[in-house]
Amino acid sequence: MSEKEIKNLDEIFEQRIARDEKIEPKDWMPEKYRKTHIRQISQHAHSEIVGMLPEGNWITRAPSLRRKVALLAKVQDEAGHGLYLYSACETLGVSREELYDQLHSGKAKYSSIFNYPTITWADIGAIGWLVDGAAIINQVPLCSTSYGPYARAMIRVCKEESFHQRQGFEIMMTLAQGTPEQKEMAQDALNRWWWPSLMMLGPTDAESVHTAQSMKWKLKRKTNDELRQQFIDQTVPQAELIGLTIPDPELKWNEERKSYDFGPIDWDEFWQVVKGHGPCNKIRMEARVGAWEEGEWVRDAAMSYAEKQQNKKTKQAV
């Protein structure tokens, strides 16, 4: 194809997206669109499956049977969400195994928040309430993103995710209304998870490299800072309702903006964790790589068995 022809196709493509038409796997798409989508969707998928680990850490120790089954179902959902997203990514011509390689070799990123440890039961509440809360804010707009398979996966994810945040909030509420020890546990978890949750919505707009292009392709509908403000505005009253204190002395309602003003975020910490220096980067990756490597003989066995069965069938047919 000549450069002129590509430019023409490019224009038609951008017009389709501007008209809110969906792009489907076999449609022509600019290489950059394909690459950007592989990057974002796979990052999203990786985040789901790495995110299983900090929460999975408490399944065996959940304090009641009701909490245990709910947490188990939630972590299982995350595996499902990872699966839907990897499948969406595969429609762009990349295999799940290639995507795993990128994750395991450290080439691909995942949400940094999962590099923080879950050290008490209240952390499970805080993750559900804050981390899933922030994730939902990020994800809901993606249900109408331009790439069809991604949008469809997100619709399914958002539908299933609706119980996750409720579950987290209920855990926090129960603790906050419980004994002094429980309340302290809840407050401590909020103190540790608040700032990482704010960081989770991404670098400030000034530093965000992908925003403009992502907006155009509807991979993003609002900027990181807008999403962060939305998250703070909706979460602060929830904390007040259950009697917990947001660990930000500068947090104040701004009557003029009808929003909360908040203190500075420690972006240095954010970038350190992204670069691999978070408290759990290493053990998270070891767990993922370990599961994959230890599972190899199992996956091989299934393929070998399938092949033998297929051969038997063929022979019988002859």
């Binding site: 999975g56 972590v75 595996a79 599961a291 230890e294």
Partner: peptide, 9 residues
């Protein structure tokens, strides 16, 4: 949970 040989399993 989270440590299986692959997501489906």
């Amino acid at each position: 949970c989270g440590h299986g040989p692959n997501l489906e399993t």
